[in-house]
């Protein structure tokens, strides 16, 4: 009965989307999680699974410009979407200003939350280029970090804001 439905189904299906500026096509079950498709089909392992329930944010990616937990996105919903992962943030060898600031100000310790945290920060700065400390706290509150106590992450984001403002 689902034959007249425009896309999806139960069997594996082919679908395309853009990842880090590149058009990618995968053949997967429509209920595969975006996180698994990125990690296993596309070998983009920067997004991590920390909790599988949208609580820790370590699987964060940008989907059509919006920060999402990729563990909660069935791949069919990412059809034709524009996805940016941590691997797509640096321009070649040139780090993004947030990456640079995380490096300089101790924003990354064990590094497991770092990709998601940097993407959350990047999303925040896109929407709000001059965030207050309160905005930063709120903007990152969906990304759990067990190492840093967040303070040096706030420092890093604040420095990236300054850096951006200068350039």
């Amino acid at each position: 009965m689902t034959t007249n439905i425009s896309s999806g189904g139960r069997a594996k299906c082919e679908l395309s989307f853009t990842v880090n500026g590149e058009r990618r096509t995968v053949r997967v079950h429509p209920m595969e999680r975006l996180l698994d498709v990125l990690r296993q089909e596309l070998a983009l392992t920067g997004a991590k699974e920390g909790c599988a329930e949208g609580e820790c944010g370590s699987c964060s990616v940008l989907m059509d410009g919006a920060l999402v937990n990729s563990c909660l996105v069935p791949i069919l919903q990412a059809k034709s979407a524009n996805i940016v992962t941590i691997e797509g943030l640096a321009a070649g060898a040139q780090l993004n200003c947030l990456q640079e600031a995380f490096l300089d100000f101790g924003g990354a310790q064990c590094g497991i939350c770092t990709p998601g945290m940097i993407l959350a920060a990047s999303h925040l700065l896109q929407r709000n280029p001059q965030p207050t400390i309160g905005d930063i706290r709120e903007g990152l509150s969906g990304n759990l970090c067990r190492c840093t106590g967040y303070v040096q992450i706030f420092d890093a984001v604040a420095k990236a804001v300054q850096f951006k403002a200068r350039t």
């Binding site: 983009l44 392992t45 920067g46 991590k48 995380f102 490096l103 300089d104 990354a108 590094g111």
Partner: peptide, 21 residues
């Protein structure tokens, strides 16, 4: 001095290889 973390670049770019990677 606060020199850069040895493995820091890999961590901020998502290239660091954890076991599940």
């Amino acid at each position: 001095a606060s020199v850069p973390r040895k493995e820091g670049r890999d961590k901020v770019t998502g290239r660091a290889q954890y076991i599940d990677d």
